[in-house]
Nucleic acid binder design. Sequence first.
DNA 1: CATAAGTTTCAGTAATTTCTGAAACTTTGG
DNA 2: CCAAAGTTTCAGAAATTACTGAAACTTATG
Lengths: 186, 186
Amino acid sequence: MQLSDFHKDFVLHFGEMGSRWGIARTVGQCYAVLFLSDAPLCADDLVEALGVSRSNVSISLKELQAWNIVRLRHVQGDRRDFFTVPEDMWEIVRTLVEERKKREIDPTLTKLRDLRMAEPSEADAYAHGRVTELHDLIETMTGFYDELSHLETERLVAMIRMGAKLKKFIAGSAKVLPLKSKTTEG
Amino acid sequence: MQLSDFHKDFVLHFGEMGSRWGIARTVGQCYAVLFLSDAPLCADDLVEALGVSRSNVSISLKELQAWNIVRLRHVQGDRRDFFTVPEDMWEIVRTLVEERKKREIDPTLTKLRDLRMAEPSEADAYAHGRVTELHDLIETMTGFYDELSHLETERLVAMIRMGAKLKKFIAGSAKVLPLKSKTTEG
DNA sequence: CATAAGTTTCAGTAATTTCTGAAACTTTGG
DNA sequence: CCAAAGTTTCAGAAATTACTGAAACTTATG
């Protein structure tokens, strides 16, 4: 499992981006190697490819599995665990969004719901209003997300590719739908 | 600037979530305090409210400004710098998405473009294909994002609230538009 | 049940990131 | 130009997170 220069370039980039994406360097690199690989790989393949410790790879693979973005695969006649990444990239995107929502949004949604419940004292009136507004906004967005997430990939992609056409449809409906906004200011 | 229990609860949550959101604890807490505040606050208000060092607040405010999510405000007859968060939450969301795209996606887009350019050796053929596919996918998504980002907030929100109605429109168009997918070639 | 092939755990170390406090710097008004 | 009020910088301390290597554990097979 020596990596070609092409592979290395990609893999190192994923390692560097890791910290921005909220994952450890090795986790990003493991993912990158699996992403580029035609065939399923075992932990030792990754150790060799990346030159990191076996335990590091083991933990990184666990994390990737926790994220649901690598899959365990068993190879006929081999006792070792092998891993792959789904072929379908839209599937990958879906999972990534879902998992990030789970980690980065859902806990806050819960907290906002709780805070909103509390009967605010005089001094907290403004803050309570802000919390309420934020909670409503996030619910609106996650509601939209939930609807999209149930679409078949084909339709979702169709929509994404639609772009400008979508705009026109919205433009038409916007006149009809009552909008909740800070009164037209101009 | 003593924080009420209500404020504290919110602020501590933002601090804890910070690491998941890719910001330091104090950065998250500063933002939270500003978010809940009716009036603009100066650095020392935050020092007092959070019990952290002046320099920490200073750096945190710089980071928040780098993210474009707090604004410098000058108060009549006061030499100090004051800070606020935009009132309009959709504005905040736009900025957040824009900045995260800049940090988490754009560098990878550049890298993928470069890798795609390279003429792949025999051994890199599969990997090169994966890179190409990933590049196409991200361009499709950022293209869609660019279009949406130019919509006025009113229309954007109208669209998000539309949900189910949007589905029907897509369903109709999907039959008409040629879809690029695994099963259907050219 | 013994062994070998493989995986996981964990205590300690290394690396990185965040935070502090003091010093340096900037700006305004006299 | 000086003094006062404010802001920024930065070297080192503290805290957190990532990584290693060795030991413990698991499981398939003779």
